[in-house]
Amino acid sequence: MRINENTKIVGRKVILVPYCAEHVEKYHEWMKSPELQELTASEELTLPEEYEMQNSWRDDEDKCTFLILSRMIYDETGNELEALVGDTNLFLKADEVSGDRLQIAEAEIMIAEPQARGKGYGWEAMLLLFKYAQKNLNIRKYEAKIGIKNEKSLCMFEKMKFREVSRSAVFAEITLERVIDNEWIQWLDEQVILLCENYR
């Protein structure tokens, strides 16, 4: 999505940056991991395919992605590749009921670096992405499809006030939803203001 190609969001623990060509090789190495493939329901791509995917994330109007940097590492090194720990994405789609374009977004989060897990990076990155989307994209509802065994992600989205709407035994995943209303926006603002001076 071109709208965020020059956007950097600085939080307390993380910095969100656009997915650029210089990040592809490290991302490609991550996605060789069977664990990450299972958690993200992904298949390993060749390096040329990964570059094509990066172009798609940059150009397609129905995708919004940011890579997640550890702010502590980036502040120490000034090197995005060294600080890179994961990514967070939105897949936008039309509301099948209303037919309105880009009303629903499926949210995804991945903390790829094992040493970066359990530090609150995913929580902060997801909240900052939700706030960015609220200000810049036409979204009325979020979905999250999470593997049944992925208890940490399920717990995180439930804490973000998502509710379970379905389970698929075939895909071994749970679908959660969050309708965007004034009460949730107020909650989101309260969370984000603690994380990021950009949104005060």
Rank of each mutant, 00 (worst) to 15 (best):
E82A: 13
A105Y: 02
A116S: 13
R58P: 04
F66A: 03
E49G: 14
D59R: 09
E44Q: 15
L127V: 03
S70V: 03
C196M: 05
V170T: 09
G78N: 13
E106N: 13
K149R: 12
D181K: 03
Y27I: 11
V165P: 03
I185N: 05
E22S: 12
W184P: 00
E50Q: 15
C64D: 03
F66C: 04
L69F: 05
N6W: 02
I185C: 10
P114T: 10
E173Y: 00
L102F: 14
D59W: 07
D62T: 10
R12F: 06
K93F: 14
A169Y: 02
N136Y: 04
I3D: 09
T7V: 15
E80N: 08
L39A: 12
D95K: 06
R2F: 09
M110C: 13
I15R: 04
A112G: 13
K26I: 09
E35H: 13
E29Y: 11
A116F: 04
C155G: 13
L39R: 12
N89S: 12
D95H: 11
L129E: 02
K63A: 09
T175A: 01
W57Y: 15
I109C: 05
T40I: 11
L67K: 03
A133N: 08
K63L: 14
I9G: 01
S166Q: 07
R58C: 11
E29D: 14
Q115P: 05
K32Y: 11
I174V: 14
T46Y: 10
K159V: 03
Q186S: 09
E190Q: 11
I174F: 02
R101T: 11
K32M: 12
V17R: 02
E173S: 10
A144S: 09
C20F: 11
N79R: 12
N136W: 04
N136H: 14
I9W: 01
I104N: 03
I180Q: 01
F91Q: 10
R58E: 14
S168T: 07
Y74S: 07
A83W: 01
E124M: 04
S70L: 05
A125E: 02
N198C: 01
K159C: 06
L45H: 08
C20R: 15
A112F: 03
V10A: 07
E29V: 14
I9C: 01
K161R: 14
T88N: 05
R200S: 09
A41P: 03
L84I: 06
V192S: 00
N79V: 10
R163E: 10
V10G: 01
K141D: 04
L176P: 01
R71N: 10
L129R: 01
D189L: 03
K152H: 11
A116W: 00
P48N: 13
